[in-house]
Design a binder for these strands. Structure first.
Lengths: 354, 354
DNA sequence: GTACGCTTGGAGAGCGCTCTCACGAGCTGC
DNA sequence: GCAGCTCGTGAGAGCGCTCTCCAAGCGTAC
């Protein structure tokens, strides 16, 4: 809505006694304008409380100075997803120093057309896509119409050539598993994430890399859905499939009340939520962490440190991811070339569970 | 950025052999157009893969079909604020059925001009402002230039006449306190929130209403900053100021290891975070909840139910708040009159701590 | 005095769309 | 048979801005 009374460039020009072009030049800091003219324009702008109409400007200049951050609706439900907030923060931070404005688009999955039309309708200069999901084909049709940066490696082969920023999930998972192995644990199990998301796939692959390297048992894997509940269920399945055998059960100082123990002595969970659920479920079975089962999570959720005991986990620098994605996109928008792949390092945060 | 190759209305018109006006009519579903013309246009649109340029449309129609959700940067830091996610979800849900698009604006507090210019620059049809903070004067200058709906009662007197949706914090706090009183507790303390936010002020007032009604001790109040840490600190101050006296200390089944107990037997915390911190601190002093001190929180955070024991709290229907704000704004945009104040009911969720 | 370069500012043609207005065609009714 | 309709369509004038010319003014050089 443009209030009818809004002052226009034209009115400012009249007020300042110069032409529209001159006002435009002053407002945008272009070219050389005589000091008196500049002063006159500034005065007129102030007097009329003029604010340039960005829509008109966009139409004429074919730029919008807006970038979209697209979040699939299903993610927004998991919006509370502790991973998400810091990403947004990073994006906002990176953008604060530019003239770009953030535009968070909750992509309705039932009406993908709406998103596509918005993106193609000249509303934004570029888009950031944060999605944990694959199977989302909304961005295929966009072709090269718009610079897009993905957060996380796009699974779709057609999108693989697009620009993306990701953490090295695979390597981080491998390191975490190696850490477990290096601390004297023999049988490291894993609760993997959904295998239709890069984070799920890559973290499982990393675990397997490490386990295979020492000739370990790669059957010690169960899948979860990145939720606490699913983590609990997965660990129970693990326990049922691999009850206490010769190995494991260090039981030093454990509160084991009479359970059979576990057929593994360490666990790498593909995210913190599942790790939390697993620890809870283990406890219900009389198994404690780290005594009976050392646990390493992934993400370093806001609450990871507040668990009891505090969770050892792989920190995913989400804020930095947001910053990095944004900087990349801004460069693409300004026409620069940039590498398609940016990998952000992770860090193992040692706390109480391993 | 508008890719140079983008088809325009003009091109569609040429392709379909009709005038621009007719294409516009078909695309927007206006008026009566001959069936053959409609078919021809649709065919041309499909053939050219035409997507209307929303910027041009906005310029001409003076509508944008975009509404902004404004979040102050400081909130976005607390973005993980469990209150926020469901609000966004509610907004997105309400918008999904309309043609409006959501535009989340992280308002830079260091550059308020940026937000103001964006809002005034004809980019959006209306704005939703979610802020827990007062002292934000960014919206004062907007006058009636733009329909705005606030989430939470605006503290600034100048904004009081604006439209807002809020939960009845005061009444909810009163009810929660009465519930505590009704369950046999005699001395109900409170940890209030910051007194520069409506939620802080109103919840304290509600507690006082209930306490005064039974001639209780209104000095049993300390302030916190809505964080876990501050909740813990506040309850310690409470404990220090009011050690065990004649009253309180039911101590049934408590693990009291030798502490002095507390000079209050119930606690109403202005949010769940502070309640969680308080329970933790009480426990460190050998006091347990609900045995020694019954606790009621506020918000029903995502994690409230997962605490041990699960937290009794006042549920704040955040999603509904988002929906309600959005519906109100949409009505305002379409020029309807609407009540300035919408109050959403809360609900006491009885769990383990009271 | 002419030629040339430089700075400054104005005119005007769009950007892609909406929407009013007017016009022609086909109809009804007397 | 003609006024008076309605219905479908096209022409064209913007919406508020950018940006490319182009012209005027002034200074310097020859």
């Amino acid at each position: 809505m443009i209030p009818s009374g809004n002052p226009t460039l034209e009115m400012v020009a009249a007020e300042a006694g110069v032409s529209r072009a001159t006002v435009s030049r002053v407002v945008n800091g272009h070219a050389s304008v005589a000091p008196e003219a500049v002063a006159a324009v500034h005065a007129a702008v102030a007097r009329l409380n003029y604010v340039p109409n960005r829509v008109a400007r966009s139409l004429a200049s074919r730029r919008t100075d807006v970038i979209a951050l697209i979040v699939p609706e299903s993610t927004s439900t998991v919006f509370a997803d502790p991973f998400f907030a810091p990403v947004v923060r990073g994006v906002a931070r990176a953008l604060a120093e530019t003239d770009f404005t953030l535009n968070l688009l909750v992509a309705s999955e039932t009406r993908p057309e709406k998103t596509r039309r918005y993106l193609l309708g000249g509303n934004v200069d570029g888009a950031l896509v944060v999605s944990h999901h694959s199977g989302d084909h909304s961005y295929l049709g966009l072709g090269d119409a718009l610079p897009i940066v993905f957060g996380g490696r796009p699974l779709n082969p057609e999108l693989e050539s697009r620009h993306y920023v990701d953490v090295d999930n695979r390597h981080a998972a491998q390191s975490a598993t190696e850490y477990l192995l290096g601390s004297g644990r023999r049988r490291v199990a894993t609760i993997a994430g959904p295998q239709d998301m890069p984070a799920g796939i890559d973290r499982l692959a990393g675990w397997r890399d490490a386990v295979e390297a020492v000739g370990g048992d790669v059957s010690l894997a169960e899948h979860g859905a990145f939720t606490q509940q699913s983590g609990a269920e997965a660990v129970i399945r693990l326990l049922d499939r691999h009850p206490a055998s010769g190995a494991g059960s260090a039981s030093t100082g454990s509160a084991s009340t009479g359970s059979a123990g576990a057929g593994f002595d360490a666990l790498f969970a593909a995210n913190d939520q599942m790790a939390a659920g697993a620890i809870q479920a283990l406890r219900n079975r009389g198994l404690s962490s780290p005594a009976d089962v050392a646990v390493v999570g992934f993400d370093d959720d806001a609450f990871a440190a507040t668990l009891d005991p505090p969770l050892t986990t792989v920190r995913q620098p989400a804020t930095e991811l947001g910053v990095s994605m944004t900087e990349l996109l801004v460069r693409l928008i300004s026409g620069e070339e940039a590498p398609h792949r940016t990998i952000i390092p992770t860090e193992l945060v040692r706390r109480g569970t391993a």
